[in-house]
Simulated scan of single mutants.
Amino acid sequence: MSPNNKHNLPLNSADIKILLIGILSMIAGFFIMTLDKEPFGFGFLGLTLGPIFVLLGVFIPIFSLFNKRKND
């Protein structure tokens, strides 16, 4: 691969940033679930808020990978 083929990479810097945001959102969701003080995590943090962050962490990278740009 020559230096001129730099634009043929599958992910650009914006896509990589969005992927990292998704990964950090998943990590934050799992951490939020551990903060629940109810037995077995059956409180608001363990059953509602944490899983929402984890799902966002899954859907944000999927959206970024399949999002078609007008200039591509």
Rank of each mutant, 00 (worst) to 15 (best):
M1N: 09
S2R: 11
S2W: 05
P3W: 11
P3S: 12
N5P: 09
N5V: 12
K6L: 15
H7F: 15
N8R: 13
N8Y: 13
N8C: 10
L9M: 11
L9V: 15
P10I: 00
P10Q: 00
P10E: 00
P10D: 00
L11W: 03
N12G: 01
N12M: 00
N12W: 04
S13K: 11
D15H: 14
D15Q: 11
D15P: 08
I16E: 01
I16F: 02
K17G: 09
L19R: 11
L19C: 08
L19Q: 11
L19M: 14
I21P: 02
I21M: 06
L24M: 06
S25D: 03
M26C: 07
M26I: 07
M26W: 03
I27S: 01
I27G: 01
A28R: 00
A28S: 05
G29M: 05
F31T: 15
I32H: 04
M33S: 04
M33C: 05
T34P: 01
L35W: 08
L35C: 10
D36Y: 07
K37S: 15
P39N: 10
F40E: 15
F40D: 12
G41N: 01
G43Q: 05
F44Y: 10
F44V: 09
F44E: 10
L45C: 06
G46R: 02
L47T: 13
T48I: 12
T48Q: 12
L49Y: 05
G50W: 02
G50L: 03
G50T: 04
P51T: 11
P51L: 10
F53Q: 05
V58A: 05
V58L: 06
V58F: 13
V58G: 02
F59Q: 06
F59A: 09
S64R: 09
S64L: 03
S64A: 06
L65Q: 04
L65T: 03
F66R: 08
K68A: 08
K68W: 09
K70C: 04
K70S: 09
N71S: 07
N71T: 15
D72T: 08
D72Y: 05
